[in-house]
């Protein structure tokens, strides 16, 4: 698992999408992240960890390599714009409106 900066993550994600064009799938996972790197202490033990409540962990994998990044509330708008564009640009292998192309894959424009 490689933890990357936001920009580097997007670059790597693009590469991942390109790699998986002919075979394989891209899996992206979102999870709320509070910065905790140790398990929750058991009963009686004091909680030393300060929960920062405003992060989001984004992981991506093609089944072989894994990449991840942490998005904070400061960067979320910027990251999300780039991320949305990236997703829309790469998820183009789906069917267009099923009127014309039933059961057949149409080429994306």
């Amino acid at each position: 698992m490689v933890l990357l900066e936001n920009d580097a993550f997007l670059t790597e994600l693009t590469r991942l999408f390109q790699k998986c064009r002919t075979t394989g799938s891209v899996v992206i996972t979102l999870k709320k992240y509070d910065g905790r790197t140790k398990p929750v202490p058991r009963k009686g033990h004091p909680e030393t960890h300060e929960a920062a409540d405003n992060k989001c962990l984004v992981r991506a994998s093609d089944g072989k390599s894994k990449i991840s990044t942490v998005v904070t509330s400061k960067e979320v708008i910027k990251f999300q714009m780039a991320y949305s564009n990236l997703l829309r640009a790469h998820m183009d292998g789906l069917k267009k409106k099923d009127k014309k192309s039933k059961g057949k894959k149409t080429k994306a424009t």
Partner: peptide, 26 residues
Amino acid sequence: KTDQAQDVKKIEKLHGKLMRLMVSKE
């Protein structure tokens, strides 16, 4: 699950919305 291109937008939108929720404080 979908194979329709028109669903990409919706899925991506929800995906983004959940991401925003995750980074928002409460």
